Simulated assay, not measured.
Amino acid sequence: MDSQSADINECLDRFFEPTEIASDSRIRSSRVVDAPPVLCIQVQRVQFDMEKMMAFKINSHLRVRSQISLTRFTGSGTGDLGVEGLKRRLASVDRRLDTLALPSDGSDVLEALGRVQAFMEGVEKWAHLDAAHELLADLPGADVRGTAETVSTLVGSLASTLSDARGRWAQEREETAEEIDRVYDDVVVDSMAYTLHAVFIHSGMTPEFGHYWIYIRDYHKEHGVRWLKFNDSNVAVVDKDEIFRVGPGGFANPYYLVYARTVDLDSTVGI
């Protein structure tokens, strides 16, 4: 994982994504034949910088799910549940939104058009000044005022068109992302379905330093399912939002996840 934020399902999709073998251009793919009772997932957060010759930690946010399924990886590809089609649609929308970016100064096209329009409106007002009339009289055929009005109108029209389009693309992106989210949430309880049991956390900017703790799913006879935080000698009940937060969580990151097969959950974790 190397983006600002990722979903555990996206990581699984990438892991099972078909890859081309450079030596003979064949496609290599993997599929799940039999699912284990306990599924352990290691998040590859430590990378090595060949230029600096040192290891570094990727602190990207990972959205952890309470339920996941390996069903879509049992066939010939990940398109069994339509995830790939939705992701292609999402990528297409992202490309359209990305085209509005201006890499030179960090702004986007609409911001630049706004600055141009404001400038041309200023030119138009300037052209009405008496001093400007005297100056322009020495330039035969120079219709600065008319040109400024025309350019300002055209820029405003283009900005309005692009703004409306960006609104539609942004809405399409949100709807597509929500659709993907529903697919990931729609976990059928079968032999390929898993329930999160433990989350190992590393807090620290680098792989060499930091602090470790673990969250474990527990079943209490009176209170039902709860999450316990084991932090050195301290054990405390925590709100599940602490584990399943959607937004970035700084430098405290999951690096190891333990899932138990849902149909065997009682016997596997000893409930």
Results as ranks from 00 to 15, higher is better:
229 K>A: 09
131 A>W: 03
64 V>P: 00
31 R>W: 05
60 S>W: 00
183 V>G: 05
130 D>E: 10
158 L>D: 13
234 N>A: 12
192 M>E: 10
18 P>M: 03
129 L>V: 07
199 V>D: 02
196 L>N: 02
200 F>C: 15
196 L>A: 06
60 S>P: 04
71 T>V: 13
54 M>D: 10
127 A>Q: 00
198 A>N: 08
148 A>K: 03
225 V>F: 13
206 T>I: 06
66 S>G: 11
151 V>G: 04
201 I>W: 10
75 G>I: 04
37 P>H: 06
96 R>D: 09
159 A>D: 01
11 C>P: 03
164 D>V: 11
25 S>M: 01
204 G>M: 05
252 A>M: 03
128 H>C: 15
15 F>R: 00
7 D>N: 03
186 D>V: 02
169 W>N: 10
228 L>Q: 08
66 S>H: 05
181 D>L: 09
118 A>K: 14
227 W>R: 03
9 N>T: 04
72 R>F: 01
27 I>S: 04
79 G>S: 09
207 P>V: 05
119 F>I: 14
123 V>Y: 05
235 V>P: 04
255 Y>S: 04
255 Y>V: 01
191 S>D: 08
154 L>S: 10
238 V>D: 00
159 A>Q: 11
163 S>D: 13
173 R>Q: 15
199 V>Y: 04
250 G>H: 08
228 L>P: 00
165 A>N: 00
235 V>G: 01
174 E>C: 05
1 M>Y: 14
169 W>M: 11
91 A>L: 00
113 L>M: 08
96 R>H: 07
1 M>D: 13
142 A>N: 15
58 I>N: 07
224 G>M: 02
195 T>M: 14
163 S>H: 08
102 L>I: 09
